[in-house]
Design a protein around this nucleic acid. Structure first.
Length: 489
RNA sequence: GGUGCCGUGGCCGAGUGGCUAGGCAAAGGUCUGCAAAACCUUCUACAACGGUUCAAAUCCGUUCGGCACCUCCA
């Protein structure tokens, strides 16, 4: 078994070789907390959650540290807009302070992530807690001649950095996104900033106008940190100057990740990241779903209609590097698919609860090896889910059959728990079974008994009424050749 | 202008030379008082046109259509 990861730096799948297998270090860019999360974000966070969970499985949970930042500093929405940033603009709209906005939306995001069973990061630093360190890094870059001060702001000197000879393992500016500065169109969406020496230079520190709410004192006067700097600083603080994996959305590859690389290498004089992973977009009607597009579907609204884990399942049915076409029909299909999985697992668990393990060991089911192989191939969750559906089909046949192999059922349960719950995070095993000896179970036995009596005297009006009324409160009755079973919907 | 990506059956979506992915939906069947669930069967597709090859959804070329990024964005 060897894990292969598609590395944006090389544009190929590479065998994953940790810098230190006893502690794999992974970072992902976190949210700027000024709006609710939408399904496009969900794809990105769920994808990296599965990467993380798979590494925890492969190397042991204690051998991985996963860091995600919270960007609670507003950044410029538009240079022409006189310092109006996303956080401050939202604060004005909601008539609250930017700090309240950040706290409110951070809580919202974490709630949404929790509901989709995304594990909390090991460390979740806030940009505002690292202002001092960001200033220090800007100073370091000034000392090294890679930045300059202009009108109270500090900018990274991209052309200057490009002229330096980089040691082995360092990535030149443009090396991640494969861009050359001279080919770029400047001043398209954003007006050119006259303070900069060159349009590709980016801010390390921005001078704040007096009315700007979030500002801190610095050697260059009152201001606030540049957008890219926090990730470099917080990643180094928790993960060191060189670490294994950096993940994020494809739309952050340029400029954000490119700038991170340049400033980290420039300031700390070490290679930055071994493997860069980029998650693709969700599309609606053939267009990217995004904040600026105004076509975003936020999670709070989706949760009113759909199970958060069905949304997770929907996302895992496509590869993280592919775009995913969103439609209500596709979501419904995913919900049905997840339902099929849940039913099978509940059935399996009920069988295993009623018949205790007899200690018979059984070898690992074949589908698990196929599952792990798919995951090893750059986290191919669609193929991996296909292997699990094969396993579910085998399971259902076993459950139908008269002579059940208990050892094999236990082996299947262990394999499904690992694959579905530990690695994919679909949480199939934690549902209440409504076991024996509980009052609900006893009551259900009475109801089923009464219905059975009605059926025996062919009073189907009564028996169907019982079934329909139970269904209305979420209890489904299914008649099988072994008698009637019930399950909570 | 530059840099990438994509076009697969009704829908979603894997697959990069030969071995019908998978899910959802639909139809038929087994079971059944009826349902439901489960199982079995059916629906065998790769934008178009050329080329390479014993063999192309996959490689090459052309065309058509679409998407993303180029300093706010997951």
């Amino acid at each position: 078994m060897s894990l292969r990861i598609y590395n944006t730096l090389s544009r190929t799948k590479e065998e994953f070789q940790p810098i230190d297998p006893s502690l794999i270090r992974m970072y992902r860019c976190g949210p700027t907390v000024y709006k609710h999360m939408h399904i496009g974000h969900a794809k990105s966070y769920i994808s990296t959650d599965v990467v993380r969970r798979y590494l925890m499985h492969a190397y042991g949970a204690e051998h991985l540290i996963f860091v995600m930042n919270i960007t609670d500093v507003g950044h410029l929405a538009d240079d022409a807009d006189e310092g109006e940033d996303k956080m401050e603009a939202q604060a004005r709209r909601e008539n609250r302070s930017p700090f309240e906005i950040a706290a409110y939306y951070e809580a919202s995001w974490l709630e949404d992530l929790d509901r989709m069973n995304v594990l909390r990061p090991d460390r979740m630093p806030h940009a505002t807690d690292f202002i001092r360190q960001q200033i220090t890094t800007a100073e370091l870059l000034l000392e090294r001649g890679l930045a300059y001060v202009s009108n109270g702001s500090v900018y990274f000197d991209v052309a200057g950095y490009q002229q330096r000879d980089l040691p082995e393992g360092f990535v030149p500016y443009g090396g991640l996104s494969n861009r050359r500065s001279e080919d770029q169109q400047y001043g398209g969406r954003i007006a050119e900033n006259q303070e900069k020496r060159a349009p590709q230079d980016f801010a390390l520190w921005k001078k704040a106008e007096p009315e700007h709410f979030m500002q801190w004192y610095s050697p260059w006067g009152w201001g606030y940190p540049g957008w890219h700097l926090e990730c470099s600083v917080m990643a180094r603080y928790y993960l060191g100057t060189t670490f294994d994996i950096h993940a994020g959305g494809l739309d952050n590859m340029f400029p954000h990740h490119e700038c991170e690389i340049a400033q980290s290498q420039g300031a700390y004089d070490a290679p930055f990241v071994r493997y860069w992973m980029h998650v693709n977009m969700v599309r609606v009607n053939d267009a990217k779903m995004g904040g600026s597009a105004g076509n975003a579907l936020n999670m709070k609204d989706l949760y009113k209609r759909y199970d958060p884990l069905a949304l997770r399942f929907f996302i895992l049915q496509s590869h993280y590097r592919s775009t995913l076409e969103f439609s209500l029909e596709a979501i419904e299909a995913a919900a049905s698919g997840l339902d099929k999985l849940r039913k099978a697992i509940v059935r399996l668990r009920k069988v295993l609860v009623s018949i205790p393990a007899n200690g018979a060991m059984h070898e690992q089911p074949a589908f698990l090896a196929a599952f792990l192989e798919a995951m090893d191939d750059d986290f191919n969750t669609p193929v991996a889910l296909g292997t699990l559906f094969e396993g579910i089909g085998q399971l259902n046949k076993m459950l139908e059959s008269d002579n059940r192999d208990l050892g094999m059922l236990h082996a299947f349960a262990d394999a499904f728990r690992l694959a579905f719950d530990d690695i994919l995070g679909l949480d199939l095993f934690s549902r209440e079974l409504g076991g024996e000896g509980e009052i609900a179970g006893d009551l259900m036995e009475i109801m089923i008994g009464l219905r059975q009596e009605a059926r025996a005297r062919k009073d189907f009006a009564t028996s169907d009424a019982i079934r329909d009324r139970l269904k209305a409160v979420g209890v489904v009755l299914e008649d099988t050749k072994e008698g009637t079973r019930w399950v909570m919907e």
